[in-house]
Design a binder for these strands. Structure first.
Length: 420
RNA sequence: GUGGGCGUAGCUCAGCUGGUUAGAGCGUCUGGUUGUGGCCCAGAAGGUCGUGGGUUCAAAUCCCAUCGCUCACCCCA
């Protein structure tokens, strides 16, 4: 048997309604905040991601789906969306059109990691990018927007964490201070963190090793190394959030894995999923656009993992039942009436009524059971003596009442079905 | 890349101190009188016990390998 590739999942019909519900909320909220949808290709030139996300990050160094196509171009399935959006922004010279672009997307992403709860190799994210302004209001708006969507979807067990990583010069001086602090404690660090000491020292903060956590509790704090300007930006973000009643926690251990972040970073975590608790993460990336060859342009954004959100929702019991039902089910009482049934179905469907009929040549009883399972509001019996007299029988499945209706006057039925 | 758990009907699982035709619940299908659902009742279909090898008179049950799933580390959404 051929099975789906490891880390990929089919989304079956019974699961679609929750996906649609989430997508609908995303679209409504994005539009409410005046973000415009953008769609970019599934794959890009590999260098976009290696330059954009950072050569040393795990995403680029070991998780990308990269291959060479027939024209020997190195191609990569997009592991995240920001680099693609920025590429499109630069390529289409959007900065010349207007100063600020507020964009959103819903798309699948690809990362070759070991799958686990809330983590797949093909997964779906929605997210937003505001390109063209350094205004801290937009930093706050990103958090507001993401939080708003998660809340609207029904999630409760949420926590907003924010931090500021400052600008590169501030971060570099912080990193060297951190290095100093850790140098005499190096031997006590976990093996993983010893590696991180060289590759990305900030990530030691992410360690779940108890000794590491203890050591890092005494480490210097990033906010002490930020300039007045960076701190002021951060203060404003916090004030805006407080002003609209969003609770948050400043977490100076919140460092993000992508290289391009500057100043504000944030995460919204859920206590309702497994260890992959970050439902959404983002922050400001003021240098990325220039770094990818565009005009110097400040920007901020976020991405949210849809599978994780769905998982959290399921675990919190906030999923909604699929309420879809049928308007009418046609019961064919004799095999000879098949073409009549088919004709009536066509007319009902032409009038936008959700109509179903039997394709398996089953008994009337079986057809009724099927109608019931499909939650049909009405059943229309075609056949028998009524049909010979020119009538079809309309049955209300909830009340059980039924009545004869002239078969050459389907309009009466259509009107009746459209009423409720 | 590293570690733990698990692979028996469509689904959830029982059976596993080796021993006659492998079970349950749910679901599916068909019936419960001529043409009518939901509840109830009856019956039926459906499984090379992940795959390959080994031990044995005998293996779903023990051993090895392999594949897959899953959770966690790592990383991140």
């Amino acid at each position: 048997m051929i099975k789906a590739i490891t880390g990929t999942k089919d989304i079956l019909p019974e699961q679609i309604s929750e996906w649609k519900r989430l997508e609908k909320i995303v679209e409504e909220k994005m539009s409410c905040f005046n973000y415009k949808e953008i769609r970019t290709p599934t794959f890009e030139e590999t260098s976009l991601f290696s330059r954009g996300i950072g050569e040393a990050t795990d995403i680029v160094s070991k998780e990308m789906y990269t291959f060479t196509d027939r024209s020997k171009t190195s191609i990569t399935l997009k592991p995240e969306m920001t680099a693609s959006v920025v590429r499109a922004f630069i390529e289409h010279k959007l900065s010349k059109k207007q100063n600020l672009h507020k964009l959103y997307y819903i798309s699948s992403m690809y990362r070759q990691e070991r799958p686990q709860a809330g983590r797949l190799r093909e997964f779906h994210q929605f997210g937003a990018e505001a390109i063209g302004s350094d205004n801290p209001m937009l930093d706050a708006e990103m958090i507001e927007l993401a939080y708003d969507i998660l809340k609207s979807f029904g999630l409760k067990n949420l926590e907003v964490k924010i931090n500021s990583l400052g600008v590169p010069s501030e971060r570099e001086s912080y990193k060297s201070e951190l290095k100093k602090y850790l140098s005499d404690k190096f031997d006590s660090l976990s093996e993983d963190s010893k590696k991180r000491f060289e590759t990305n020292i900030l990530r030691i903060f992410d360690s779940k090793d108890e000794r590491d956590i203890e050591i890092m509790d005494g480490a210097p704090k990033i906010l002490d190394f930020l300039s007045d300007e960076s701190l002021e930006h951060f203060e404003k973000v916090k004030n805006y959030l407080t002003g609209i009643g969003i609770e948050f926690k400043v977490d100076q251990k919140l460092v993000r894995g992508l290289d391009y972040y500057t100043n504000t970073t944030f995460e919204i975590v859920s206590g309702s999923v497994g260890s992959q608790s970050a439902l959404c993460g983002g922050g400001r990336y003021n240098l990325l656009i220039e770094q990818l060859g565009g005009p110097p342009t400040p920007a901020t954004g976020f991405a949210a993992g849809m599978e994780r959100i769905l998982l959290a929702c399921q675990n919190e019991g906030c999923s909604q039942e699929d309420k879809s039902s049928l308007d009418v089910y046609l019961v064919r009482m004799e095999p000879a009436k098949t073409s009549d049934v088919f004709k009536i179905a066509a007319e009902l469907r032409n009038n936008n009524l959700k109509t179903e009929l039997d394709y398996l040549s089953r008994s009337v009883k079986a057809q009724m059971r099927e109608a019931n399972r499909l939650k049909a509001r009405f059943v229309l019996f075609v056949g028998g003596e009524e049909f010979e007299k020119g009538y079809v029988v309309l049955k209300n499945m909830e009340s059980g009442e039924q009545e004869d209706v002239k078969q050459d006057n389907l309009d009466a039925i259509i009107n009746r079905l459209n009423l409720k």
